[in-house]
C-alpha cells in the first residue's frame, strides 16, 4: 500500500477551456496534492487552474457499459450541429 493517497489531477490549460485529466500524484493531503500537481504538471506554464480529486472517490463507467450508456445517443443526430442544413446565404453559424 502506498503511504500517501493517490489524487487525480485536472488542469485548465487556458481560460475558457475545460479542466482536462492529466494524470495523478501522491500526497498526504489535498493541499500537498495541489502543490505536487503544480510542480509536476505545470512546469512549462501549462495551466491556469488545477483540480485534485482523491482517486478512490471517482466513479467511472465500466467499458462493458459502453453500449448502454453511450450508444443510445448515436441515433440522436439532432444533437449535432451538422444535422441542420442551412442555406449557404445564411453564412457561418
Amino acid at each position: 500500500m502506498s503511504e500517501w493517497r493517490l489524487y487525480e489531477v485536472f488542469v485548465r490549460s487556458k481560460h475558457g477551456l475545460n479542466h482536462k485529466h492529466v494524470g495523478s500524484v501522491h500526497a498526504a493531503d489535498a493541499e500537498m496534492a495541489m502543490e505536487n500537481a503544480r510542480d509536476l504538471y505545470t512546469r512549462r506554464n501549462e495551466g491556469v487552474s488545477i483540480w485534485v480529486v482523491p482517486s478512490d472517490t471517482i466513479t467511472a463507467s465500466a467499458s462493458d457499459e459502453k453500449e448502454v450508456l453511450f450508444d443510445p445517443s448515436e441515433d440522436k443526430v439532432y444533437r449535432h450541429a451538422s444535422f441542420y442544413k442551412l442555406p449557404d446565404e445564411v453564412g457561418h453559424m
Binding site: V25, H26, A27, M32, E35, N36, D39, L40
Partner: peptide, 11 residues
Amino acid sequence: PALEEEMALMN
C-alpha cells in the same frame, strides 16, 4: 525523501 519532493526541491 519522496519523488514529489525531488520536483519541488529542484523547482
